[in-house]
Each structure stands twice: as structure tokens, then as C-alpha cells.
């Protein structure tokens, strides 16, 4: 479970609120899709949930743990795939996974087993002994996904996780997301690909100008069955924050 209560954030170098008074709860067993145009506040929200940024006000809880009060315990529960691929480029893939495994205190034997399992699943085994800097965009994305899942976190936070993945790997990941949610865990999923969000997510939240415009199940948001999520999204985000509630 992830709970955000009245969370606001303004960057030090800006006067505009990147996220304003955001209150949101993502329940266990749910895949939550987080949508919004560029600069709407999606990444800022994700960075605050993962502990990368501190909110100016409000409370963020991950599985009931306040991330500001107990960051280590809260972060241990999260598996995070960022939207960029900025990582330790001069490490080999296997060294990076070893590093992540150690940071999450995974015993050596278990780590070895999970590395083999996930690398096989995403077709990355042969590339792991190579330097990350030699990886293609898709290979880096696969590595980030494996690194996020390797400690079997309760909460998955995936920022554009399907970008660059080949169809097989994208399918695998979607299957994993569903399986993870069915086991009573939480998946927070951000994407620009509305079709995928429509197919995968149980509930959707749309953010614009730092404010949560709407949050509900897809059917409830749509009201009219003939309206696609895409046209709905364009209407909501074009008219400002108060046009649709």
C-alpha cells in the first residue's frame, strides 16, 4: 500500500509548485496507472515516494511506514524502475546486480538464483558480463527492471518501464505485474502509452500542473462507454485542473 496525504513540493530553483496538495492511496493487490502530460508532476511524485526527493509538506507512507521517519525500512520495500537510464555505466551488468543485491541485503545464494532466473526471463544472461555502457537502450531497461525486482519488493514503482523493451520482454513484465498484484502487492505504474495503461491497470490517476485531476477505475472515469481513455486524457489535461472532477 502507498498513501500520500496532502503532499506538496516546490523545487529549490523554482517558485512553481511541482506537486500541490496531493492525496492518493494505492491499495494492496492493485495496479495503479499514473498519467499526465510532460511536466505535470508524475516524476516528482514518484521521486518523493521512492525517497529521492523530500516533500515540503505532507506525509508519504509505504506499507504503513512513513518514508520521512524511517527511510531505510520504507525503501527496502520498494522496487523502482526510473524513466531515465542514468546508471553506473562503467560497471558490468552482473556487477551492477551484485551491487543492488548487496544494498538490499540479499544472501549470496538467493541473489545468484534470482539473477539467473530474471536474466533468463528477460534474455539478458549473455550480456551480463559486459559493461553497461555497451548496452542498447532496451538492454539497459531490462537491467533496470531486473535490478528493481531482484529483492522481491512488496511495492513496485515503475516509471515508463516498457519503453525500449522488445515485445517478449514487455509481455513478460506485464505478466509479472499482474502476478505481483494478485499476490496482494502494489504496482504503481506511470506511462505515456495510454493503450497499455488501459489494458493493464485496475485504477488510474491523472495529474496535471501538479494537481491530481482525477482518480478512479477506468469505467468510472469514462462514464460514457464510447469514449476512449486517450480522448478523455486529452480533454482533462487540455482544460486545466478543475474542468473534470
Amino acid at each position: 500500500m502507498i498513501r500520500l496525504t496532502n503532499v506538496s513540493k516546490t523545487y529549490a530553483k523554482s517558485t512553481v509548485k511541482a506537486v500541490e496538495d496531493l492525496t492518493l492511496e494505492i491499495k494492496d493487490g492493485e495496479i495503479f496507472g499514473f498519467l499526465g502530460p510532460n511536466g505535470a508532476g508524475k516524476s516528482t511524485t514518484i521521486k518523493m515516494i521512492t525517497g529521492i526527493l523530500s516533500p515540503d509538506s505532507g506525509v508519504i507512507e509505504v506499507d504503513g511506514i512513513n518514508i520521512a521517519e524511517n527511510p531505510i525500512a520504507a525503501k527496502s520495500l520498494i522496487g523502482f524502475v526510473p524513466d531515465n537510464h542514468e546508471t553506473y555505466e562503467t560497471l558490468k551488468g552482473i556487477e551492477y546486480l551484485n551491487f543492488i543485491g548487496t544494498m538490499y541485503n540479499i544472501p549470496s545464494e538467493l541473489l545468484k538464483q534470482r539473477v539467473s532466473e530474471y536474466a533468463e526471463m528477460f534474455g539478458l544472461t549473455d550480456a551480463l558480463p559486459n559493461m553497461i555502457s555497451s548496452y542498447s537502450h532496451g538492454m539497459k531497461q531490462k537491467l533496470m527492471v531486473i535490478a528493481a525486482l531482484i529483492h522481491e519488493p512488496k511495492v513496485w514503482i515503475l516509471d515508463e518501464p516498457l519503453t525500449g523493451l522488445d515485445p517478449q520482454s514487455a509481455f513478460q513484465l506485464k505478466q509479472l505485474m499482474r502476478k505481483h498484484a494478485e499476490q496482494g502487492n502494489t504496482v504503481f505504474f506511470s506511462s505515456h502509452v495510454i493503450d497499455v495503461v488501459e489494458k493493464v491497470c485496475d485504477r488510474i490517476g491523472i495529474i496535471n500542473h501538479g494537481k491530481l485531476v482525477t482518480v478512479d477505475t477506468l469505467d468510472n472515469i469514462r462514464q460514457d462507454e464510447n469514449v476512449s481513455l486517450e480522448s478523455l486524457f486529452l480533454t482533462i489535461t487540455a482544460d486545466g485542473t478543475d474542468s473534470v472532477k
Binding site: 551484485n98 543485491g101 541473489l111 539473477v115 536474466a119
Partner: peptide, 23 residues
Amino acid sequence: RRKAAKVTLEVKNKGVVKELIFT
């Protein structure tokens, strides 16, 4: 690809501080 075929995956938890230093 040739290099990958030769190398076996070595995975070991060395401890947090040691891993941070060597990484």
C-alpha cells in the same frame, strides 16, 4: 558475444560498506 560465452556469472554479497567501496 564471444566474451560472454567464456565468463561465468559470479555473484556474492560482500557487505554494504565493502561493496560501496569496491563499486
